[in-house]
């Protein structure tokens, strides 16, 4: 079953357009929404949640958000870059209001998450570290039985250890709760570890919507001593690096003695953006 279906999501701004974004999130999958700053990741997530008035269809577990807005939002746990709300309120004050919106609220589960994440309910939001804010948002989302987590840059601002911890939590949730996750990030190292699928957005368009393995298997990174040497190949996004030049080549290119390395999401993004084109 599909946890999320996004069809033709479109939003016009004076200087930016989200151009008919379509993709799915399979149940139990972790999907990374990637793209450079300003590519349309946050606009896509806001469009899904109706924080902005975008055109297009959004279905969550088969329910249309346009006709069943409340039911759809009950299935979703939104983690918008940590917890940026009510900095002067205590966690208990926020929870006491939040839980009323969810008939499926599980207080025992919430208390267990507080213990697990070492969160003190009498603390104010402003006193939490960025990592703790993300954990609080996750605790709220999972205690009301959200089956789809939508996260907007949840790991930005986190140190490497906190990011690792965040990835561990997500992997555990997938195993124990079978939640589905869509999260936008430009810290692609996290996705290399946990993502099943990748949706790559550039300038408001979906450039790629496929499994991580498939994306990584499409390319390899080639190193050349000079630009002239690279002219013999179909190189994508050739750019100078510390020693010579680097670009993407198709993975099925015959090995002919040049230095190749496995492509990463970072490298694919960098060279495709440098080339200014979509996948081939």
């Amino acid at each position: 079953m599909k946890a999320l279906e996004v069809q033709n999501l479109t939003k016009f701004y004076p200087k930016f357009t989200l151009k008919g974004v379509s993709f799915d999130v399979e149940e139990g999958h972790i999907v990374g929404l990637i793209g450079r700053n300003g590519a349309g990741k946050s606009t896509t997530l806001k469009g899904i949640l109706r924080l902005i008035s975008a055109e297009g269809d959004v279905k969550v577990f088969g329910k249309d958000i346009n006709t069943e807005e409340e039911a759809v939002k009950k299935e979703i746990g939104y983690v918008g870059g940590g917890f940026r709300f009510y900095p002067l309120k205590t966690l208990s004050a926020i929870k006491s209001v939040y839980k009323n919106f969810f008939s499926e609220w599980n207080e025992d589960k919430y208390q267990n998450y507080l213990i697990k994440f070492s969160l003190a309910e009498d603390k104010k939001v402003k006193d939490l570290s960025e990592g703790m804010k993300v954990k609080f948002a996750i605790a709220l989302a999972l205690s009301h039985g959200a089956r789809l987590l939508i996260m907007d840059e949840p790991t930005s601002g986190l140190d490497p250890i906190s990011r690792e911890e965040f990835c561990d939590i997500i992997i555990e949730l997938i195993k124990s709760e079978r939640v589905s996750v869509l999260f936008s990030t430009h810290v692609t190292g996290d996705l290399m570890r946990i993502a099943d699928d990748i949706v790559y957005i550039s300038d408001g368009n979906v450039l790629a919507d496929m499994s991580l393995k498939e994306l990584l298997s499409k390319y390899k990174v080639a190193h050349f001593d000079s630009e002239k040497q690279a002219e013999n190949f179909e190189v994508i996004g050739l750019k100078p690096v510390k020693e010579g030049f680097e670009g993407l080549v198709k993975a099925d290119l015959k090995d002919d003695g040049y230095i190749y390395e496995e492509a990463t999401i970072d490298k694919i993004m960098i060279h495709l953006e440098a080339e200014g084109r979509g996948l081939c």
Partner: peptide, 15 residues
Amino acid sequence: ENNDLQFTCSLPVKK
């Protein structure tokens, strides 16, 4: 200042 409208929109309510 509390980003209340964004928070509320993410809750299961009609906008």
